[in-house]
Design a protein around this nucleic acid. Sequence first.
DNA 1: GTCAACATAATATCAGACCTTTTAAAAAAA
DNA 2: TTTTTTTAAAAGGTCTGATATTATGTTGAC
Lengths: 264, 264
Amino acid sequence: MKTTRPRTPAKSADPSPVGRPLKGAEKSTGRRFSIERIRIPKAADVLASHLRDEIVEGRLSNGEMLPTERELAEGAGLSRSSVREALHMLEIEGLLVTKPGRNGGSMVCQPSRDTIVKTVSLYISSRKTQLTSLIEARAALEPSGAMLAAKHRTDVDIEAIRSMHENLEASIDDLDEFLRANIDWHLAVIHASHNDLMIAFMESISGQVYAATNVERMNPLEIRQQVIKVHGRISDAIIEGDPAAAKRRMERHVGAYAGHLGIE
Amino acid sequence: MKTTRPRTPAKSADPSPVGRPLKGAEKSTGRRFSIERIRIPKAADVLASHLRDEIVEGRLSNGEMLPTERELAEGAGLSRSSVREALHMLEIEGLLVTKPGRNGGSMVCQPSRDTIVKTVSLYISSRKTQLTSLIEARAALEPSGAMLAAKHRTDVDIEAIRSMHENLEASIDDLDEFLRANIDWHLAVIHASHNDLMIAFMESISGQVYAATNVERMNPLEIRQQVIKVHGRISDAIIEGDPAAAKRRMERHVGAYAGHLGIE
DNA sequence: GTCAACATAATATCAGACCTTTTAAAAAAA
DNA sequence: TTTTTTTAAAAGGTCTGATATTATGTTGAC
């Protein structure tokens, strides 16, 4: 039972005997039937999809251990390398964590926000996304975030926002420190919204916004004082639980920033 | 030169000779020095990070071919399996596409929006994110999206929005078709914003919103008629290039939907 | 000149060995 | 008995080399 198997193993319930894509005869026979580039899945991909489904559908639940690589290989009729490749894919997607050693193995887990942040950050930096796009996205998310923060903030959130605001005030003379504290305050606000998705989106772009921020703009002392003042007023609205005011003020705040960049 | 090498190969410029985490003597010697769980990177991870940097920093540019796996293996002093694992990681991250066969190999490419969509969708469905969070995120993104659409729409965008709106009108009697056409119109609007990030975010959540939409609500005919009317007015604002109106109307539209779900 | 057969270069997969890490269990010491 | 140390087993991590599959040049018959 160890001899050559045909491709596309496992996933046995595939009734279409497509086989290979017609060897020659490709160049636009132009009829009403142009067959579209059949993709032959790799063994690891198939196994990965299978396991991914098992996890998402809940048949493999959080914290559960998968069989060992060797068992999976035998079970799926694949080599250990292919199994490893599949497991590795799911690990990157944040669905598994793998530990070596006795009692090690692959454990099912939920993807964390960090997975999103990594992916989106990679997208942004490898596409060299325009700063305007980042600012636009931020301008879309932050006012609503502030509004939700005013609605859902807990005592812990309030404490965090206050603390971040104090950091900002304390670092008014250190430009780099000030920019960092600025981001931290914004992140504290979005965290208070208790909306995981929006937090993830904001975390993804805030790093890049920070990296691309024109330092010049923050240079004048009065600008930094102004920022602190506005942050204070937004913090107040959130702490007092006034969603409308929080949204309005944040809208004006990020709008002012965009205006300075000529986005209007 | 093929004998056992020490771990952590390549990445030679690591000055810290940490080695293994002190063999025995672990359990809280309690001094002022508790060393924190050193993580030993895997060979594939190191190579992957290295290549990822090369790509992101632009030293490997879009469309460029990497050396063959065997060449990379020899160059990095790793086995082909480790190299393959690294390449596979980058492929999942959307930074490479790999083709088998003669003249095949790994080509550098930019991650597509699809990468984000997949990641975020996976996050949402495996965390069983609350519908309210999705609606909140949507409510944050769509008004700004409509505003940007009114600013940046091209003739092609206008045509697409018109076409989607006609589809919606045509499917008023088929509930499922109507819901799908509804989503498509919203996606056409966000596409017209020409903000890749916001498009990616909206595409990520719209599928899930669709899957979770309470069909009951759309059941009354007058509701569907109302939706069509509002969409029409938003479309008009976008087509006429009136950002403020587009934003305001979209805000009311998604607000109305949220209101029905008791989110307010 | 076209088309079929062959050659070739690359990835895909496999099989099996050995290495490293972790921990459970056994043995030794207190 | 309790604690510490040693040992061994179980798991993932890595390497090697062979084979399969795929895509594409190349060549030769017609």
